[in-house]
Computed example of a mutant assay.
Amino acid sequence: MSVIKVSHITKDYGNQRGVFDVSFEMNEGEVLGFLGPNGSGKTTTIRQLMGFMKPDQGEVTILGMDCFNDSAKVQEKVGYLPGEIAFMEDMSGLEFIRFMAKMKNMKDMSKAEELMKFLELDARGKMKRMSKGMKQKIGIVIAFMQDTPILILDEPTSGLDPLMQNKFVELIQNAKKAGKTILMSSHIFEEVENTCDRVVMIKEGHIVATKTMDDLKKNRLKHYEIHFFDESEAIAFSQKYPQSQRDKKIIHLMLKGHTNQLLQDLSEYDIDDFNARPQSLEELFLHYYGGEQ
């Protein structure tokens, strides 16, 4: 069942800023990574999904409801984490969480307390004295505490340290097991790789690729770093593989598929060291962006 549907939306701010003819859908229980550099149109798309602005053209629906005209009903079904959270700086973190719970007509705070414990968040201090990371944790608590069927998260781990980024991945994986539908904009590729079923890549307001994670993993190249004992052998090998790059005795090579043929070719040489790793999602992303950024 299609839970989120973005149909040919355009929001034109002029000077080629905005989003143009953007379309994608999300099914129930799916986790979608929405990828793109700053200014590519991720937040503009998300703000239309939340009903904060109306598209110039096209339609955005969640659970069959128009995101702009039925925004109040839509927002009851969505846990939202904005890219830039507007905090009330004179409140303590706890007061702000309770204030947001009251706005959402929440009576039971047990989920919020569970999330604060999980994120190791002491929210008693004043917001104005909190670090970016602590404020981000408060935003995550507010997005998840209502236990909604849909989560829309704009750069959710911005400001979190690596340990907390891992905790957040665990949070997403648990929400996924619970059958929630999650749209997550991100630039942290490990985060996307460890949580998402599919990615939509956006560049300058246009969708440039939509891929399943399985497809991306299946088609990604492997990066090989081969250290030869003798530079003349490295030169001879690089002539067999003209796409390789050589730095004296070291060869860097990107190949798709099995390594059998490569290992067979290398058996003719004296090898000092051999390293292999899969192409990262970031490298794939740059491939779809034509090597920019």
Rank of each mutant, 00 (worst) to 15 (best):
G125M: 09
V60R: 02
V78R: 09
L119A: 06
D90P: 11
S40K: 05
V78E: 10
L49K: 04
F68S: 03
M53L: 14
L115F: 00
Q57H: 14
T44W: 08
M134S: 12
S110N: 14
S71I: 06
I46A: 00
M53V: 06
P82I: 04
K132V: 05
E84C: 05
L81N: 04
K107A: 15
L119V: 06
Y80V: 09
R129V: 11
N69S: 12
N69E: 15
E95R: 01
M100T: 06
G79R: 08
M65Y: 12
N105I: 03
Y80G: 07
I85P: 07
F52Q: 03
I62G: 05
V74F: 06
F118R: 14
Q75E: 03
E84A: 10
A101N: 05
E114C: 01
Q57D: 13
M50S: 01
K117P: 02
K117Q: 13
M130P: 08
L119P: 07
S92W: 01
Q57V: 11
K77F: 10
E113L: 13
K54V: 07
K107L: 10
I97M: 09
S110K: 15
Q75T: 01
K126V: 07
M65T: 04
F68M: 05
M127G: 02
R98L: 13
E89L: 08
T44A: 08
G79K: 07
P55D: 04
S71C: 12
M88D: 12
K128E: 12
M106S: 05
K126P: 02
K54N: 12
E89R: 11
A112D: 11
K128V: 06
G58L: 03
M65G: 01
G93L: 02
K102M: 12
D56L: 09
Q57F: 14
I62F: 07
K117G: 09
I62D: 04
A101V: 06
I62T: 07
R98K: 15
L115G: 02
M130R: 09
A72H: 12
K104M: 13
L49C: 12
N105S: 15
K128F: 10
I62W: 05
M106L: 15
M116I: 07
E113C: 08
I46V: 08
L121Y: 07
K111G: 01
D56F: 07
G125T: 09
A123P: 08
K132G: 04
E113K: 15
M50C: 02
P82M: 04
Q48L: 15
K104T: 05
L49F: 03
D108P: 06
M88C: 12
G64V: 05
K104H: 15
S92G: 01
F52C: 00
K132A: 03
M103I: 14
D70C: 06
P82C: 06
A86S: 14
I97N: 12
K128M: 07
G93I: 02
N69K: 15
I46Y: 03
E95V: 01
I46Q: 01
R124M: 10
E84N: 11
L119M: 13
E120Y: 09
G41D: 05
F52S: 00
G93E: 02
G125V: 05
K135S: 08
K111N: 14
R124S: 13
D56Q: 11
E59S: 15
V60D: 01
R124V: 10
A72P: 00
S40A: 15
S40R: 04
M103L: 15
P55G: 06
